[in-house]
Protein backbone atom coordinates (compact mmCIF):
# COMPACT_ATOMS: atom_id res chain seq x y z
CA UNK A 1 0.00 0.00 0.00
CA UNK A 2 1.66 3.25 -1.09
CA UNK A 3 2.05 5.97 1.52
CA UNK A 4 1.88 8.91 -0.85
CA UNK A 5 -1.13 8.95 -3.15
CA UNK A 6 0.40 10.74 -6.14
CA UNK A 7 3.59 9.96 -8.04
CA UNK A 8 4.71 13.60 -7.82
CA UNK A 9 4.35 13.75 -4.04
CA UNK A 10 5.91 10.31 -3.70
CA UNK A 11 8.94 11.27 -5.81
CA UNK A 12 9.50 14.42 -3.72
CA UNK A 13 8.90 13.08 -0.22
CA UNK A 14 9.71 9.36 -0.27
CA UNK A 15 13.53 9.70 -0.29
CA UNK A 16 13.66 12.37 2.41
CA UNK A 17 11.02 10.56 4.51
CA UNK A 18 13.17 7.43 4.54
CA UNK A 19 16.26 9.39 5.53
CA UNK A 20 14.49 11.27 8.30
CA UNK A 21 13.06 8.09 9.80
CA UNK A 22 16.52 6.49 9.66
CA UNK A 23 17.89 9.56 11.44
CA UNK A 24 15.24 9.27 14.14
CA UNK A 25 16.11 5.58 14.65
CA UNK A 26 19.82 6.38 14.87
CA UNK A 27 19.09 9.09 17.38
CA UNK A 28 16.93 6.78 19.50
CA UNK A 29 19.33 3.84 19.30
CA UNK A 30 22.54 5.62 20.10
CA UNK A 31 23.26 8.94 21.59
CA UNK A 32 26.79 8.20 20.53
CA UNK A 33 28.30 11.33 21.93
CA UNK A 34 30.43 12.03 18.86
CA UNK A 35 31.08 15.65 17.98
CA UNK A 36 28.80 16.98 15.22
CA UNK A 37 30.39 18.51 12.14
CA UNK A 38 29.74 22.13 11.27
CA UNK A 39 26.28 22.02 9.69
CA UNK A 40 26.12 25.73 8.91
CA UNK A 41 26.32 25.25 5.15
CA UNK A 42 23.71 22.50 4.61
CA UNK A 43 21.41 24.28 7.09
CA UNK A 44 21.84 27.52 5.14
CA UNK A 45 20.97 25.70 1.90
CA UNK A 46 17.79 24.37 3.54
CA UNK A 47 16.94 27.85 4.85
CA UNK A 48 17.28 29.34 1.36
CA UNK A 49 15.10 26.60 -0.11
CA UNK A 50 12.51 27.25 2.64
CA UNK A 51 12.53 30.99 1.92
CA UNK A 52 11.94 30.35 -1.78
CA UNK A 53 9.18 27.85 -1.09
CA UNK A 54 7.47 30.16 1.41
CA UNK A 55 7.56 33.03 -1.08
CA UNK A 56 6.16 30.92 -3.91
CA UNK A 57 3.60 29.42 -1.48
CA UNK A 58 2.23 32.81 -0.44
CA UNK A 59 2.23 33.95 -4.09
CA UNK A 60 0.14 30.88 -4.91
CA UNK A 61 -2.25 31.65 -2.02
CA UNK A 62 -2.59 35.29 -3.10
CA UNK A 63 -3.50 34.58 -6.71
CA UNK A 64 -5.74 31.58 -5.96
CA UNK A 65 -9.50 31.89 -5.75
CA UNK A 66 -9.72 28.57 -3.91
CA UNK A 67 -10.80 29.46 -0.37
CA UNK A 68 -9.85 26.06 1.04
CA UNK A 69 -6.34 26.38 -0.38
CA UNK A 70 -6.09 29.90 1.08
CA UNK A 71 -6.99 28.38 4.45
CA UNK A 72 -4.83 25.24 4.28
CA UNK A 73 -1.56 26.61 2.89
CA UNK A 74 -0.47 29.24 5.46
CA UNK A 75 -0.27 26.80 8.43
CA UNK A 76 1.82 24.43 6.31
CA UNK A 77 4.11 27.28 5.24
CA UNK A 78 4.48 28.36 8.88
CA UNK A 79 5.31 24.80 9.89
CA UNK A 80 8.12 24.68 7.30
CA UNK A 81 9.41 28.09 8.33
CA UNK A 82 9.41 27.25 12.07
CA UNK A 83 11.27 24.02 11.31
CA UNK A 84 13.96 25.98 9.48
CA UNK A 85 14.41 28.20 12.56
CA UNK A 86 14.94 25.07 14.67
CA UNK A 87 17.67 23.98 12.24
CA UNK A 88 19.34 27.40 12.36
CA UNK A 89 19.23 27.35 16.17
CA UNK A 90 20.72 23.85 16.24
CA UNK A 91 23.49 24.85 13.86
CA UNK A 92 24.40 27.85 16.06
CA UNK A 93 24.30 25.72 19.22
CA UNK A 94 26.55 23.07 17.64
CA UNK A 95 29.09 25.64 16.63
CA UNK A 96 29.38 26.63 20.29
CA UNK A 97 29.22 23.03 21.50
CA UNK A 98 29.56 20.19 18.95
CA UNK A 99 28.36 17.71 21.62
CA UNK A 100 25.15 19.60 22.49
CA UNK A 101 22.30 17.14 23.07
CA UNK A 102 19.50 19.78 22.82
CA UNK A 103 20.99 20.82 19.45
CA UNK A 104 20.77 17.22 18.18
CA UNK A 105 17.15 17.11 19.29
CA UNK A 106 16.43 20.35 17.43
CA UNK A 107 18.06 18.93 14.29
CA UNK A 108 15.69 15.97 14.41
CA UNK A 109 12.63 18.11 15.15
CA UNK A 110 13.61 20.54 12.40
CA UNK A 111 14.14 17.84 9.77
CA UNK A 112 10.88 16.20 10.75
CA UNK A 113 9.08 19.56 10.66
CA UNK A 114 10.36 20.30 7.16
CA UNK A 115 9.12 16.91 6.02
CA UNK A 116 5.69 17.26 7.65
CA UNK A 117 5.23 20.87 6.55
CA UNK A 118 6.23 20.13 2.95
CA UNK A 119 3.93 17.12 2.96
CA UNK A 120 0.98 19.25 4.23
CA UNK A 121 1.80 21.90 1.64
CA UNK A 122 1.91 19.45 -1.26
CA UNK A 123 -1.30 17.79 -0.09
CA UNK A 124 -3.12 21.14 0.17
CA UNK A 125 -1.93 22.04 -3.31
CA UNK A 126 -2.84 18.64 -4.72
CA UNK A 127 -6.33 18.80 -3.20
CA UNK A 128 -6.85 22.17 -4.83
CA UNK A 129 -5.80 20.70 -8.20
CA UNK A 130 -8.33 17.91 -7.66
CA UNK A 131 -11.04 20.50 -6.92
CA UNK A 132 -10.29 22.07 -10.32
CA UNK A 133 -10.93 18.73 -12.05
CA UNK A 134 -14.09 18.24 -10.01
CA UNK A 135 -15.37 21.64 -11.16
CA UNK A 136 -14.93 20.48 -14.77
CA UNK A 137 -16.82 17.25 -13.97
CA UNK A 138 -19.61 19.29 -12.40
CA UNK A 139 -19.90 21.49 -15.46
CA UNK A 140 -20.47 18.33 -17.51
CA UNK A 141 -23.21 17.35 -15.04
CA UNK A 142 -24.78 20.78 -15.53
CA UNK A 143 -24.82 20.31 -19.30
CA UNK A 144 -26.36 16.89 -18.89
CA UNK A 145 -29.12 18.40 -16.76
CA UNK A 146 -30.32 20.46 -19.73
CA UNK A 147 -30.66 17.40 -21.97
CA UNK A 148 -34.36 17.32 -21.13
CA UNK A 149 -35.02 20.71 -22.76
CA UNK A 150 -33.55 19.60 -26.10
CA UNK A 151 -36.61 19.02 -28.25
CA UNK A 152 -35.63 20.00 -31.79
CA UNK A 153 -32.70 19.28 -34.12
CA UNK A 154 -31.38 22.82 -33.80
CA UNK A 155 -31.18 22.44 -30.00
CA UNK A 156 -29.50 19.08 -30.40
CA UNK A 157 -26.78 20.54 -32.62
CA UNK A 158 -26.17 23.32 -30.10
CA UNK A 159 -26.23 20.83 -27.21
CA UNK A 160 -23.60 18.59 -28.83
CA UNK A 161 -21.49 21.62 -29.75
CA UNK A 162 -21.47 22.83 -26.13
CA UNK A 163 -21.12 19.45 -24.47
CA UNK A 164 -18.24 18.11 -26.59
CA UNK A 165 -15.43 20.49 -25.50
CA UNK A 166 -16.23 20.21 -21.78
CA UNK A 167 -16.49 16.41 -22.01
CA UNK A 168 -13.16 16.27 -23.87
CA UNK A 169 -11.55 18.49 -21.23
CA UNK A 170 -12.94 16.32 -18.42
CA UNK A 171 -11.68 13.15 -20.09
CA UNK A 172 -8.22 14.64 -20.57
CA UNK A 173 -7.94 15.87 -16.97
CA UNK A 174 -9.24 12.64 -15.44
CA UNK A 175 -6.91 10.64 -17.66
CA UNK A 176 -3.89 12.71 -16.53
CA UNK A 177 -4.95 12.40 -12.89
CA UNK A 178 -5.36 8.65 -13.19
CA UNK A 179 -1.78 8.38 -14.42
CA UNK A 180 -0.62 10.44 -11.44
CA UNK A 181 -2.13 8.14 -8.79
CA UNK A 182 -0.03 5.56 -6.98
CA UNK A 183 -3.04 3.54 -5.83
CA UNK A 184 -3.80 0.88 -8.43
CA UNK A 185 -7.41 0.29 -7.35
CA UNK A 186 -8.26 4.00 -7.60
CA UNK A 187 -6.62 4.13 -11.02
CA UNK A 188 -8.67 1.20 -12.26
CA UNK A 189 -11.89 2.74 -10.93
CA UNK A 190 -11.20 5.99 -12.82
CA UNK A 191 -10.27 4.16 -16.02
CA UNK A 192 -13.45 2.08 -15.86
CA UNK A 193 -15.74 5.07 -15.27
CA UNK A 194 -14.04 7.16 -17.92
CA UNK A 195 -14.37 4.36 -20.48
CA UNK A 196 -18.03 4.10 -19.59
CA UNK A 197 -18.53 7.85 -20.07
CA UNK A 198 -16.82 7.66 -23.47
CA UNK A 199 -18.96 4.72 -24.52
CA UNK A 200 -22.19 6.33 -23.30
CA UNK A 201 -21.69 9.71 -24.98
CA UNK A 202 -22.63 8.63 -28.53
CA UNK A 203 -25.44 6.53 -27.03
CA UNK A 204 -26.79 9.69 -25.36
CA UNK A 205 -26.66 11.73 -28.56
CA UNK A 206 -28.41 8.97 -30.44
CA UNK A 207 -31.07 8.68 -27.69
CA UNK A 208 -31.74 12.44 -27.78
CA UNK A 209 -31.91 12.31 -31.58
CA UNK A 210 -34.48 9.50 -31.48
CA UNK A 211 -36.51 11.42 -28.90
CA UNK A 212 -36.41 14.63 -30.99
CA UNK A 213 -37.42 12.90 -34.24
CA UNK A 214 -40.14 10.82 -32.56
CA UNK A 215 -41.57 13.97 -31.03
CA UNK A 216 -41.43 15.98 -34.24
CA UNK A 217 -43.18 13.21 -36.19
CA UNK A 218 -45.99 13.28 -33.64
CA UNK A 219 -46.04 9.51 -33.77
CA UNK A 220 -46.20 7.09 -30.86
CA UNK A 221 -43.18 6.09 -28.80
CA UNK A 222 -42.37 9.55 -27.42
CA UNK A 223 -42.66 8.34 -23.86
CA UNK A 224 -40.42 5.35 -24.51
CA UNK A 225 -37.75 7.40 -26.27
CA UNK A 226 -37.88 9.97 -23.46
CA UNK A 227 -37.47 7.18 -20.91
CA UNK A 228 -34.52 5.79 -22.83
CA UNK A 229 -32.90 9.24 -23.06
CA UNK A 230 -33.35 9.83 -19.31
CA UNK A 231 -31.93 6.40 -18.53
CA UNK A 232 -28.74 7.15 -20.50
CA UNK A 233 -28.43 10.59 -18.84
CA UNK A 234 -28.77 8.98 -15.42
CA UNK A 235 -26.10 6.38 -16.23
CA UNK A 236 -23.73 9.11 -17.43
CA UNK A 237 -24.38 11.20 -14.32
CA UNK A 238 -23.78 8.16 -12.09
CA UNK A 239 -20.41 7.51 -13.75
CA UNK A 240 -19.35 11.15 -13.46
CA UNK A 241 -20.39 11.24 -9.81
CA UNK A 242 -18.35 8.08 -9.29
CA UNK A 243 -15.34 9.83 -10.92
CA UNK A 244 -15.83 12.78 -8.54
CA UNK A 245 -15.95 10.40 -5.57
CA UNK A 246 -12.82 8.48 -6.56
CA UNK A 247 -10.89 11.68 -7.31
CA UNK A 248 -11.33 12.65 -3.68
CA UNK A 249 -10.10 9.34 -2.30
CA UNK A 250 -6.64 9.01 -0.86
CA UNK A 251 -5.00 5.79 0.33
CA UNK A 252 -5.37 7.24 3.81
CA UNK A 253 -9.20 7.29 3.45
CA UNK A 254 -9.19 3.67 2.44
CA UNK A 255 -6.96 2.65 5.36
CA UNK A 256 -9.39 4.37 7.70
CA UNK A 257 -12.32 2.72 6.02
CA UNK A 258 -10.75 -0.72 6.30
Amino acid sequence: MPVFHTKTIESILEPVAQQVSRLVILHEEAEDGNAMPDLARPVQVVKMAVDNLVKVGYDTVNVSEDQILKQDMPPALQRVEEASFLLLDASDMLRADPYSAPARKKLIEGSRGILQGTSALLLAFDESEVRKIIRICKSVLEYLAITEVVDCMEDLVKFVKNLSPVLTKMAKEVDLREKELTHQVHREMLVRSLEEVKALTPVLISAVKIFVSTKSQGAGGVKESQGNRDFVVRKLCDEINEIIRVLQLTTYDEDEWE
Binding site: T8, Q19, L23, H27, D32, V46, A49, T60, V80
Partner: peptide
Protein backbone atom coordinates in the same frame (compact mmCIF):
# COMPACT_ATOMS: atom_id res chain seq x y z
CA UNK B 1 5.19 20.84 -16.50
CA UNK B 2 5.22 21.13 -12.70
CA UNK B 3 3.99 24.33 -11.04
CA UNK B 4 6.65 26.49 -9.38
CA UNK B 5 5.54 25.49 -5.89
CA UNK B 6 6.03 21.81 -6.62
CA UNK B 7 9.49 22.57 -8.06
CA UNK B 8 10.48 24.54 -4.94
CA UNK B 9 9.16 21.77 -2.68
CA UNK B 10 11.39 19.33 -4.56
CA UNK B 11 14.41 21.61 -4.11
CA UNK B 12 13.70 21.82 -0.38
CA UNK B 13 13.29 18.06 -0.06
CA UNK B 14 16.64 17.56 -1.77
CA UNK B 15 18.35 20.14 0.46
CA UNK B 16 16.85 18.46 3.53
CA UNK B 17 18.11 15.08 2.32
CA UNK B 18 21.61 16.50 2.04
CA UNK B 19 21.40 17.96 5.52
CA UNK B 20 20.13 14.70 6.99
CA UNK B 21 22.96 12.88 5.21
CA UNK B 22 25.47 15.23 6.82
CA UNK B 23 23.92 14.65 10.26
CA UNK B 24 23.65 10.88 9.70
CA UNK B 25 27.19 10.67 8.42
CA UNK B 26 28.24 11.82 11.83
CA UNK B 27 25.78 9.68 13.73
CA UNK B 28 26.76 6.56 11.78
CA UNK B 29 30.45 7.32 12.00
Amino acid sequence: DAPEMVRQARVLAQATSQLVNAIKGQAEG
